[in-house]
Design a protein around this nucleic acid. Structure first.
Lengths: 226, 226
DNA sequence: CGCCAGGTTGAATGATTTCAAATACCGTGG
DNA sequence: CCACGGTATTTGAAATCATTCAACCTGGCG
């Protein structure tokens, strides 16, 4: 449990002792939610911090124009529940059926202040997220839709399976609309970019939610062509 | 000293005790650098974490294409020196003459693990940066160049002067090229957007590096029109 | 078997990019 | 203090690519 702090393949992952994990489990609750369930809404009081144990969550925001900006997708081991002034900044919704750990912010804060090593693990995690967020900004700086989508697919592949862009099938449970909201493109452009990548022989969409990476090297080349 | 942890107008700011600030000062060094000085390069060993005391710093990255992506601008009270696997992720350069505090990462890590409250202040700061980073992603999602620049100017106004978009003159020490790299636009488009904002009577560029906000309400309206 | 949300495709439009060229600004040295 | 040189910036015109609007398709589900 508390998988985001368990030893893993990622050298960045910080490991906690059994006792520390027990302490976390003590204040935390395991929650299972069905797909499409809203976990919390933006601007509501932030009582909990969450960790994904299983499934995929999206963190998003409704813009005044009606657009939906997807801040990020959350996978197992990810923390979420970012707040400002005691209110959630984004809304969160389950994309698939998910299992979460839920920690009361107050109890967590007390625990973290008392246990420097555990807090350091959290600090490392948040720092990692910040780095990811910056990576994403670079992605959003790309002009070409195909390149953005290629980067997105490659990164999904990294998260899901191993790390490199190997020949494999990637599960993308989110809708095209979610992807569009994440990549800063219109839904139609995402659709066209997908067709384009397929035409170029880089990937093959088995279904709308499963992409097989056909030409890892070619895809990697496109991803690197920032 | 260590101003980013001093009491301030921002309710998010975490306050440290005098003793804690002394401890930080003990392991830290005060450094003064002239404008344009490179502070560190991406991929070099990350020995230090920095805090801006005075001046403006840019954190950027050279992309394979030769483009320069500006990750963020750093102002007094900001922390920087984000690393992954012991290497800096971005490069950092002084835009103006700057005064920095420099902390050896190892000593800082030890200090933070020992002092839970101080570490909590750092955690809060990094969390805040993460939030800012997400805000920026929303900014990058805008399609119109004028809107992006308006948001940038308004935010610079917030950081520099008070918080709201009041009638005031904002100092923007970075070049148009830096702004373009930050906003994900071409340099020319930034220039045209600036002319556009001026034509609309929202702002007036006294010089290239000083903008007077002529119509705060109008500017705010444009900023909100996401 | 038909419905409906989600997704694809087409054509016109509009904005940004790009390439090219002119202009303004800054610091330096005389 | 002023001229000079190079960099930073502005402006113009054409090309490119995403958006938009509209119509059509598809797959899952009752």
């Amino acid at each position: 449990m508390i998988s985001f702090l368990k030893p893993g393949d990622d050298s960045e992952t910080v490991v906690l002792s059994d006792r520390q994990r027990e302490e976390l489990a003590y204040i935390g609750t395991r929650v299972r939610l069905p797909a499409r369930m809203t976990i919390y809404r933006a601007q509501s009081p932030a009582q909990w911090v969450f960790a994904v144990a299983d499934g995929v969550v999206k963190s998003y925001r409704e813009l005044p124009s009606g657009r939906r900006h997807v801040a990020l997708f959350l996978f197992p081991r990810d923390l979420f529940g970012l707040a400002a002034n005691g209110l959630y900044v984004n809304s969160a919704q389950a994309i698939t059926r998910v299992t979460l750990y839920r920690f009361p912010v107050n109890a967590l804060a007390v625990l973290l202040k008392r246990d420097g090593d555990m807090q350091f693990a959290f600090l490392a995690k948040v720092t990692h997220e910040l780095r990811e967020s910056q990576r994403r900004a670079i992605l959003l700086n790309r002009r070409d839709a195909a390149g953005r989508l290629a980067t997105f697919i490659a990164r999904m592949g990294e998260r899901m399976n191993g790390r490199a862009t190997a020949t494999c099938t990637v599960d993308m449970p989110m809708t095209r609309s979610d992807i569009a909201g994440f990549l800063g493109l219109s839904l139609e452009t995402v659709s066209r970019a997908a067709a384009d990548l397929e035409r170029r022989g880089l990937v093959k969409f088995e279904t709308r939610h499963f992409v097989r990476i056909v030409d890892p090297a070619g895809l990697a080349r496109l991803v690197a062509a920032i």
